[in-house]
């Protein structure tokens, strides 16, 4: 029965994608992208990928839309239409589609238990997680311990994005517009959103922390928590104005968060090496290997959360600060 609902959502997904590409008003395109991410999250949830659904919602719908909008504020809203034949592009893309659909016929059917994917590596994980880590959420176990090296790489991708945006936007804009930078607008003089905001922001941040430390038991973990906390602070910045948010969480703290998070993760790995295990082998962290694994997972999830939160916030501030300059 669930498939029919999935069918409906997937079709809606395709329609949204086509709508995004066809619309010429970029603002509409960004809003549709946000809806596209939400639909993806719903799909993921139907396909039993709870963690990924949460991440897609928090990171995909939340932060991506914010970054897109802040970039749109600095560039134009409208896209110039491109006349002329679109046959070439359609042709190449069509060939690719045919190729993929042709390839799909030998693939295992959706949900087919005999598919090779479920035979080889996955059962081992499901069986060994209670034995080695004794934590319910197998995804977090794989994410942080079995394939911890991937996640380390992942944290450094976020770190790279953060220093990249700071580096690229570190250059003062060429032409200072003559007009004095207009007063820091946010919805400053609108009472109702501010009141509701002040009421909500603490709960959002609290929920972020809950997701952070609840990662072993249910869907959650560093990435999602970082994104949620960042969204909370961004909401505060939108309501109270960017200067206010910077006073609350200054730039040096943000940089410290990013660097601290990345280094914390790396430090855990190095400590494991010093204690005689392989890099990122948490079982040497404590006398009892299972407790060592749990401790390791907790600490690196904290590192990931710090890094992601710091990175997303400094990216937002880099864009927002740009707005007040031009």
């Amino acid at each position: 029965m669930i498939y029919v609902f999935a069918l409906f959502l997937l079709t809606l997904l395709v329609i949204t994608a086509v709508a995004i590409v066809r619309t010429e008003n970029l603002f509409v395109a960004v809003m549709l992208t946000s809806i596209f991410s939400l639909l993806m999250a719903a799909n993921f949830f139907i396909l039993d990928a709870a963690d990924v659904a949460l991440t897609e919602a928090a990171v995909g719908a939340g932060v991506t839309t914010v970054i897109f909008l802040s970039a749109l504020a600095l560039t134009g809203d409208w896209e110039k239409p491109r006349p002329g034949g679109r046959t070439v592009a359609l042709g190449t893309v069509g060939v690719l589609a045919m190729l993929l659909i042709y390839a799909s016929f030998d693939k295992p059917r959706l949900g087919d238990p005999e598919a090779p994917v479920h035979q080889h590596v996955a059962p081992w994980y499901l069986e060994k997680t209670p034995e080695y880590m004794d934590i319910p959420n197998v995804v977090t176990a794989i994410l942080s311990s079995f394939r911890g090296y991937d996640t380390l790489g992942e944290v450094f991708v976020v770190f790279a994005a953060c220093i990249g945006v700071l580096f690229i936007l570190g250059v003062k804009p060429a032409r200072q517009t003559a007009a004095a930078p207009q007063p820091v607008s946010g919805l400053r003089h609108h009472l109702i959103p501010q009141v509701v905001g002040r009421l909500l922001v603490p709960f959002i941040v609290l929920f972020g922390l809950y997701v952070q430390f609840h990662g072993e038991y249910g869907p959650g973990g560093g990435f999602q928590a970082g994104a949620i906390i960042a969204t909370g602070v961004i909401l505060y910045a939108l309501l109270e104005g960017e200067a206010e948010a910077l006073r609350a969480v200054p730039r040096s703290v943000l940089l410290a968060l990013v660097v601290g998070g990345a280094l914390l993760y790396g430090a855990v790995g190095v400590v494991c090496m010093l204690k005689g295990g392989a890099f990122l082998d948490y079982s040497v962290l404590a006398a009892d290997p299972v407790f060592g694994q749990q401790l390791g997972i907790l600490v690196i999830e904290a590192g990931v959360g710090m890094a992601v939160c710091g990175a997303l916030l400094s990216i937002f501030h880099a864009f927002a600060a740009r707005e007040s300059m031009t």
Partner: peptide, 20 residues
């Protein structure tokens, strides 16, 4: 669980490239 772990990483990669 394995594809979910991979996709968690890929989503954040996508966002990072987008921000840059």
């Amino acid at each position: 669980p394995l594809p979910q772990v991979l996709i968690l990483t890929a989503i954040v990669v996508g966002v990072s490239t987008l921000a840059l």
